[in-house]
């Protein structure tokens, strides 16, 4: 009943959905900005945002202004973008490859990103001229290309088989790049560096500033548009790629466009904040449970749920242990795993 109700409402009143989701997102962004280690009262938060966004001159403490505007707000926005991007990517890969375990890192992106990051920060490639996120982005893209090339070689002419080959190639690629990362860390990192890189590998939003927001928002919007445009095509994969082809989907083109664009979206996000696990795997399942199987509804739903989920996890990571920030990947799994278990159990009852 719930599913039918929600899906019906979203399909028949898209404006209502846009309104509700904008409102929900705004509420959580405000929460993300208002809650944190340092107590800042709500009025100050509002003033600080107004000062930053509208150029007003409310007299507030410069430190508060800085914490709210340059630290918490950017961090929350980047968290929202990453959550959306990862959830959408997970959804697309699960639908295209017909595999419930597909997630954004399936294609070796996170493994490649960490290799890139490690090579820049620890092995010193680029001699300080390259940033860690640039290294991570290049690593992610190279690993992705490697996986795709391997999958293409392995499937040969039997294109119908590509989804299995992509998954196998992804596993091989991820293992290879993870091994490279471990090798570099073992060979050249000191304890301090190893700890730093571990933190990044589990996801770290602390570096998110306006520069990152300016990167994340357009990349997310662009990816979201492409995926939304293909949402009926994604529906068509319900019975596999042959069935999709026979109801008029140019399977190869859709697979290439969607896998490539979501992979790039993920690569950009991972290069900024590290490999935040679990979001891309779990949110699509939760969204399907709540909203049924139509991608016209699922894609925006995943975008919103993913964003909200990661904002909440970020708040958790900053507040659970006073005086210490947990890696966000730890929090996503700690909150996500029980939620996922619940969804799984309730899904069985249908």
């Amino acid at each position: 009943m719930l599913v039918k109700g929600l899906q019906g409402v979203m399909k028949s009143h898209p404006l209502l959905f846009v309104l509700v989701s904008t409102l929900t997102l705004s509420v959580f962004i405000v929460l993300g900005v208002a809650i944190g280690e340092t107590q800042i009262d709500f009025q100050t938060v509002v003033y600080a945002v107004a000062n930053g966004a509208l150029g007003t001159q409310y007299p507030i403490n410069a430190i508060d202004q800085g914490v709210v505007w340059n630290y918490r707000l950017t961090r929350t926005l980047v968290a929202a973008c990453c959550g959306s991007a990862l959830a959408i990517t997970g959804l697309v890969l699960q639908s295209l490859l017909r595999n419930a375990l597909a997630d954004p890192y399936l294609l070796g992106i996170s493994a490649g990103a960490s290799t890139g990051a490690v090579l820049v920060t620890i092995a010193g490639i680029g001699a300080g001229a390259l940033s860690m996120s640039f290294g991570a982005l290049i690593g992610a893209i190279l690993a992705f290309m490697f996986v795709v090339a391997l999958a293409a070689l392995a499937s040969g002419r039997r294109m119908g088989n590509i989804s299995t080959q992509v998954i196998l190639a992804g596993i091989a690629g991820s293992q290879l790049f993870n091994a490279l990362t471990a090798f570099v860390i073992a060979k050249s990192a000191n304890a301090e560096q190893a700890r730093g890189i571990m933190f990044w590998l589990l996801g770290n939003l602390s570096g998110a500033r306006w520069q990152e927001v300016a990167m994340a928002v357009p990349v997310l919007l662009f990816g979201l548009m492409i995926v939304l445009w293909h949402s009926r095509a994604l529906d068509a994969f319900l019975f596999g790629s042959d069935a999709a082809a026979s109801i008029g989907i140019a399977v190869k083109r859709v697979q290439v466009v969607l896998i490539f664009s979501t992979a790039m979206m993920t690569a950009v996000m991972v290069s900024m904040v590290g490999a935040i696990g679990f979001v891309g795997l779990v949110i699509p399942h939760a969204a399907r449970f709540l909203f049924g199987s139509s991608h016209l509804v699922l894609v925006p739903a995943c975008a919103v749920i993913g964003a909200v989920f990661l904002i909440v996890c970020d708040i958790g990571s900053r507040t659970v242990i006073p005086g210490q920030v947990l890696p966000i990947g730890v929090v996503t799994a700690l909150i996500g795993a029980p939620c996922f278990a619940l969804v799984l159990i309730r899904g069985q009852r249908k």
């Binding site: 017909r98 596999g240 042959d242 069935a243 026979s246 008029g248 399907r288 449970f289």
Partner: peptide, 17 residues
């Protein structure tokens, strides 16, 4: 696909539809 429809031997899904 506007001219020709294909019914496969067996096509299944795990999705809740």
């Amino acid at each position: 696909a506007q001219s020709l429809a294909f019914v496969q031997q067996k096509a299944n899904t795990e999705d809740i539809v």
